[in-house]
Amino acid sequence: MKKQPFQLIGTTIPAGRKTIVNLETARLHTHNKIEVPVIVERSKNDGPVLLLIGGIHGNEINGVEIIRELISRKYNRPTAGTVICIPALNVFGFLNQTREFPDGKDLNRMFPGTQNGSMASLFAWNLMNNILPAADYIVDFHTGGGNRFNSSQIRVAKEHPELQELAAIFAPRFIVTAADREKSFREAATKLGKKILLFEGGKSLDIHNRITQRGVNGVLRLMNHLGMRDYSAEIAAMPAVDPIIIRQSTWIRARHGGMFRFHVKDGAKVMKGDTIGSISDPYGEFEKPVKVPENGYIIGLNHSPIVYQGDALVHLGKE
């Protein structure tokens, strides 16, 4: 619980007010400052602090859209506690529609960062030291990289059962057991004792309405559970979701290069031997089926029409 006064980036956040503060990230080579807007909605009543982050990878637009939707519909206004929204964290990548920082670094492999490192490392340090200490709970929104479309899923490490429970409350299509990646934001936040959920859904440079709605619904369920606002009426109107727990996953890879067409939807349950797509040459000489080697669920799907031998085609999750 956060008691008065509540400060963020040197600014006192008054109770019952919306406040926008700027996280200064760095300066361009033109010496222009680049600042990231941080939107804070603080209730008059004490309660948890929920941090919502999108766009750690600048081209993962669907996470930005989820937070934008929450703000647009004023769902981020709690009746207890505080909601901090950072829709587009990697503003450099967002402007350029690229995954990386201008220094070529993947921000999500630079945490906890340093004051004397690369631009991405300095930015990670600023986030860890100026924003993260205020948060109790975090939802970090991502999409699949490149042409990989992910079904809505929360990824949590098996050694954090309390996060498994929060993931079930969020109620995505899948809850995927996945270890924290070294130097990721999730790993750094966990080491500081923060309760963080990593949401995956959709693909890069794309907005998918189904993924957006599932992300929004998940945040409303989480806020309702944390006692931050009563969303029981909205939750009652949502489709019932019983998340499927994925304990293991593997990628089915292309045995041939060529033109890839898939015959299955993301999230579908498939059985060993099912044909889920085909790969052909562009001249009509051959067409090879892509079959599933074991039972599972399609938790990720390559939308690229052209693949090379060895490319990942389908992410198969197993209960």
Score class of each variant (00 low, 15 high):
203 K>S: 05
103 D>G: 09
118 S>H: 01
312 A>H: 15
265 K>W: 02
249 S>K: 10
264 V>G: 00
313 L>Q: 08
7 Q>M: 13
305 P>I: 05
293 P>W: 00
5 P>F: 08
317 G>Y: 07
14 P>I: 10
280 S>W: 07
290 V>Y: 03
89 L>S: 12
133 P>E: 01
222 L>W: 03
90 N>M: 08
229 R>V: 00
237 A>D: 15
57 H>V: 01
146 G>S: 05
30 T>V: 03
184 S>I: 07
145 G>T: 12
224 N>F: 03
190 T>Y: 10
48 P>V: 01
263 H>E: 07
302 N>V: 02
123 F>R: 09
206 D>E: 04
124 A>G: 07
104 G>A: 07
207 I>T: 14
101 F>A: 12
80 A>H: 15
287 E>M: 14
23 L>C: 11
172 P>D: 04
33 K>M: 09
220 L>C: 05
250 T>P: 00
289 P>N: 01
297 Y>G: 04
294 E>K: 10
59 N>H: 04
11 T>I: 10
222 L>H: 02
174 F>A: 11
167 A>H: 07
77 R>G: 00
319 E>K: 11
193 G>D: 03
108 N>E: 09
1 M>G: 15
144 G>Y: 09
194 K>N: 03
194 K>D: 01
91 V>Q: 13
169 I>G: 07
138 I>V: 15
1 M>T: 13
120 A>L: 03
159 E>A: 05
228 M>F: 04
